[in-house]
Amino acid sequence: MAVTDYLREQFMPHIWCPGCGHGIVLNSLVRAVEQIGLEKNDVVMVSGIGCSARMAGYLDFHTMHTLHGRALAFATGAKMGNPRLKVIVPMGDGDALAIGGNHFIHAARRNMDLTAIVMNNNIYGMTGGQFSPATPKNRYATTAPYGTIDEPFDVVKVATAAGASFVARSTTYHVNELIKLIREGIEHPGFSVIEILDQCPTYYGRKNLSGSAVDMLKHFKENSVKIGKGTGAPGEIEIGVFVKEVRPEYCDKYESLVKEVQGGKK
């Protein structure tokens, strides 16, 4: 199938700003799904609220646009209802870590076969550029005119600590790797978290004088290092697969429990 066959073309062009990284993630995601060869009816996309959550509207899968931060809870229900389906959850950094922080860690803990794509643009774009839990220290936002004093969350470390069995990070510059990681994440039988650093030229870029979308992509290009190849310098972005372990999956465990409990009955 062609890439555009997965899109709801009647809603294109999308609402995202010129140069927004979410579009690149959408592009990569569609290609990953195409490479795996999934049918449109085999995929469920559940999103919350935010710029990133609009993605569900543009893709011609089964889609749900749900409550802010609660996409993983709805996704858990969809997966339990029909474990055969591939469930993909696109989330923003605020959606995943602030409003949905609790859902995020508990979904990771259960190790249900969901794919959480965390599009980290370091800011709340849709609501006007407030700082998020992923805004680096001393960076500017509408609600941090003198720079934020908060320490940011590291999505990879949070997901790893919470028990996700596949954790990876990439950027919107590294598109070939991004497609590969999304593909691996979808195919992984367990809770997968893929953090994608993407650019918000409209809010984060303007507030922090990061330049255009092109300049922000160049920043990703120049500051990214493969896992273990870095020098530990501040601002360095480690990319690659951090965790990949096959652990018992939640739906499988649930099914075997049901069988065990009903074992004596005929």
């Binding site: 062609a2 555009t4 990284g21 959408l26 290609r31 598109v175 497609i179």
Partner: peptide, 13 residues
């Protein structure tokens, strides 16, 4: 394909 894959608007094929 670097333009096609990096296009945020899926405008290149």
């Amino acid at each position: 394909k670097m333009c096609e894959l990096r296009c945020p608007d899926i405008a290149i094929q």
